[in-house]
Amino acid sequence: MTSTGEAVQFWVLAVIAVGGALGMLLMRKAVHSALCLAATMIALAICYLAQGAVFLGVVQIVVYTGAIMMLFLFVVMLVGVTSEDSLKEQLKGQRVAAVLCGLGFGVLLIAGIAHAKLGHFPGLAEANAEGNVQGLARLIFTKYVWAFEVTGALLITAAVGAMVLTHREHVTAPSTQRELAAQRIRENKQVPPLPAPGVYARHNAVDIAGLLPDGTIAEDSVMNTLRERGQMRDVSQDMLRRMAELENSTAEWLGRPSSERPALPSQPRPELEPVPNHQKTTDDAAKRQEEGE
């Protein structure tokens, strides 16, 4: 049996770990999931420490929460920090089957563990006699030295693999600004500079498309990366509604008849709505290219 202190610690940590795991499972945004997982991992690291695995506890914090989770966050940022899973399940019966399988599996595991008999419980006193790190080192560099060396090879291979997978070779030298300007003139497509994002006096964020005179958005005003991620926000409807409200209040103040007042948009839309349709923009780009030719 363990000490009461460890029991209290375990229950606290268990709640945190399970809560984090469930949070990771249920959060719609990837970045939230990553943070939840980090919490779970820290809780587990403390569990390791509590169980006498000092080295592993530290490594858990350094490698997992420090390196791996940061790598996850980095990629999440690369892919789009606000991107979410849609709630609609596309595979028929997948969710139900997954839940059933999970439940069944959990029940089986717990039943199996409960079935096991724990007789003598020695603790790590003997193994950790000369210190946990020393004990591990002795094993790693004697009994498991071959596996350890192979692990080194594995890490190098993984590093090289990651580079190979993400590296893109430039086939030609990147164009200079001068060449790009010359090309714009030659193609006669977008001779002036691209429109700036933001709506005058209301929004100036880079993810909000500028509006064209007819009230629609100028997609070119938002940078490609944000468009690709679907993180461009469209405020055109909102602006039109506000314009209409302004007109209305002016008309009311001037006492004009209601027939001359502009109609309000029937269904007011949320103030800031993302434009998830990145494909539309790419399609439009293709169309524009075709028209240009």
Binding site: Q94, A97, C101, G104, F105, L108, L109, G112
Partner: peptide, 13 residues
């Protein structure tokens, strides 16, 4: 993955 998981379930059971 679901089929794999189902298979594992059966094996463990």
């Amino acid at each position: 993955a679901l089929s794999m998981f189902g298979g594992t379930l059966v094996l463990v059971a």
